[in-house]
């Protein structure tokens, strides 16, 4: 825990805890913005055109609301320092949600509008989402489950894990793994500097898939009958493939080669500067992770 949070926590101990429960009528297409410095944020949905805000905070913290058209802004302030407020929001299913909270774990379940979350220290967990989902953490994991959105998920020090995502994917971290499971996207870019890239999903005809790491492994599990032109490149990586492919003698040792699976309709790039590259069947990754 950093010094700022520690000071705020000590201040919390000396003030009276308080819970406020607020109900705000909003249009169905409401765009909700939450801004605060610290405190966890949980968002779930209901079928009403109302936003319910449950806020746990100190007696000297205040929570402000401003509704302007379809824009609802929620923010936390403190008279004595940094506000630490835990929010539980219940929002219309179609709401768009934008959360900016440097020190927070953020959890969003079931919304179908755009989602944007930015944290510095804290994990981000999203289930659902349509349109665009943009998630950025510095020190924390980023997780998305069951989303039809175009997902941009990034961390600096943490893993990025996307499961059952069918929209476009841009997933990156600096120090951590990128794990993409049960994906059905046709446009995927995954990159890390120090970590593994793992993919277990369908390769769609006409799709483009790019998996790049510097110091780590690339493990890609594809369905039987996948059609892709696969380009493999490395500086000093080993390559293993669990399929029959046609390679020229010595080609694999050259560290740069390509081959075709099926009709080659999709493009796939597998790159590890200094790790291993493994192209395998779907399901392999799940078995490995379970072990």
């Amino acid at each position: 825990m950093n010094a700022t949070i520690l000071a705020a926590a000590l201040s919390t101990l000396m003030s009276v805890p308080q819970e406020t429960d607020t109900l705000i009528a909003v249009p169905g297409n409401v765009r909700i913005t939450v801004e605060q410095v610290a405190g966890d944020v949980t968002v779930s949905t209901w079928s009403q055109n109302q936003v319910r805000v449950l806020a746990d905070h100190r007696s000297d913290d205040t929570v402000d609301y401003e509704l302007d058209g379809n824009e609802l802004s929620i923010s936390a302030h403190s008279n004595t320092g940094m506000a630490i407020v835990d929010f539980e929001l219940t929002v219309p299913v179609s709401a768009a949600v934008e959360i900016s909270s440097p020190f927070a774990d953020v959890r969003i379940i079931g919304t179908q509008g755009d989602i944007s979350v930015q944290t510095v220290e804290g994990d981000i967990h999203v289930e659902g989402g349509r349109g665009r989902v943009d998630l950025h953490a510095v020190d924390g994991d980023v997780m998305v489950f069951g989303s039809e959105a175009t997902v941009q998920a990034a961390s600096v020090d943490g893993d990025v894990m996307l499961t059952d995502v069918s929209g476009g994917i841009e997933a990156q971290t600096v120090d951590g793994d990128v794990i993409l499971r049960d994906a059905a996207s046709d446009n995927v870019q995954a990159a890390t500097v120090d970590g593994d890239i793992m993919w277990d999903g369908d390769i769609r005809d006409g799709g483009h898939y790019s998996f790049v790491t510097h110091d780590g492994d690339v493990v890609v599990g594809v369905q039987p009958g996948a059609n892709a032109k696969v380009s493999v490149a490395s500086f000093d990586a080993d390559f293993e493939i669990d399929f029959e492919v046609s390679l020229e003698p010595g080609e694999q040792e050259s560290k740069r080669f390509s081959f075709v699976l099926g009709s080659g309709n999709a493009r796939m790039e597998l790159e590890s500067f200094d790790g291993s590259i493994h192209l395998t069947r779907r399901g392999y990754l799940a078995e490995e992770l379970e072990e």
């Binding site: 950093n2 010094a3 700022t4 510095v120 220290e121 510095v138 020190d139 600096v156 020090d157």
Partner: peptide, 8 residues
């Protein structure tokens, strides 16, 4: 936060 700066 200094820890964030250090991390980055």
């Amino acid at each position: 936060d200094s820890a964030t700066v250090r991390k980055v």
